[in-house]
């Protein structure tokens, strides 16, 4: 489904990604963990072409992904993205946010798009908030609208870029529960996260990224409880037992 082969990227002197490879199968949930600045978000953003890369290859469903290629818009419409800061359109209601992609990108008739958008908002637990503007929603509610907005495009996969990092602690759970439901339904997901419990419970695979390299790649139990590398151990110690 998603194939990343040996990609490298530098911002000036700084090498953000160093020959990173990653294969994600259909229906697989992959969590990417690692210290900040390790290249997690950049890797994710290369997968839907929000970021360019210097070397290597990225493809989704067999189609090559390049930020500046003509086909990039079509590819992006098939790969959902959920951002750390939600990025809902502030001038549109929850319902309109979810309808935006289907109506204007896919050309879905309005009535049909509205019905599907409403159903998706019900699914993420926001049946009461269809006509609310983002400013009137809590962070957790906004992020659930953002997930519904991504789902409305019927994507082949969804990329999550630290979806709970900007949330107050008590709102994290409601977003993770929606993501858990999606994972159980077989959605292909790549999740950059610091939520180790979520990774342990939901992920099929966990990747540990450090200084632009994949240091470990394995099942959650192994990575999270018996990491092979010292760097992974250090990182987990810091994340799980903050001083």
């Amino acid at each position: 489904m998603i194939s990343v082969r040996n990609i490298s990227k530098s911002f000036g002197e700084h090498r953000v990604l160093d020959r990173v490879s990653l294969e994600v199968a259909k229906g697989e949930v992959v969590c990417i963990i690692g210290p900040s600045g390790s290249g997690k978000s950049t890797l994710l953003r290369c997968i839907n072409g929000l970021e360019s890369y210097d070397a290597g290859e990225v493809s989704v469903g067999g189609n090559p992904v390049h930020r500046d290629s003509k086909s990039i818009h079509a590819i992006r419409s098939e790969v959902g993205m959920v951002f750390q800061r939600f990025n809902l359109f502030p001038h549109r209601t929850a319902l309109e946010n979810v309808m935006e992609g289907p109506v204007y990108v896919k050309g879905t008739p309005r009535a049909e798009a509205r019905e599907r958008a409403a159903a998706l908002l019900v699914k993420v637990g926001l049946a009461q908030k269809l006509d609310a503007y983002p400013a009137k929603l809590s962070g957790g509610q906004q992020q659930r609208v953002a997930i519904a907005r991504a789902l409305a495009m019927q994507p082949k996969a969804i990329l999550f870029d630290e979806p709970t990092s900007a949330l107050d602690p008590e709102l994290v759970g409601e977003v993770l529960r929606v993501m858990l439901t999606l994972a159980r339904e077989g959605m292909t997901m790549v999740v950059v996260t610091h939520e180790m419990d979520f990774a342990a419970e939901v992920a099929h695979r966990v990747l540990f990224l450090d200084e632009g390299r994949i240091v470990e790649d394995g099942v959650p139990q192994q990575i999270l409880t018996a990491p092979k590398h010292e760097r992974t151990r250090d990182f987990l110690q810091r994340v799980l037992k903050p001083v």
Partner: peptide
Amino acid sequence: QIEAAQSLGM
């Protein structure tokens, strides 16, 4: 905002 729009395929 622009990235969100782009990621919808706009």
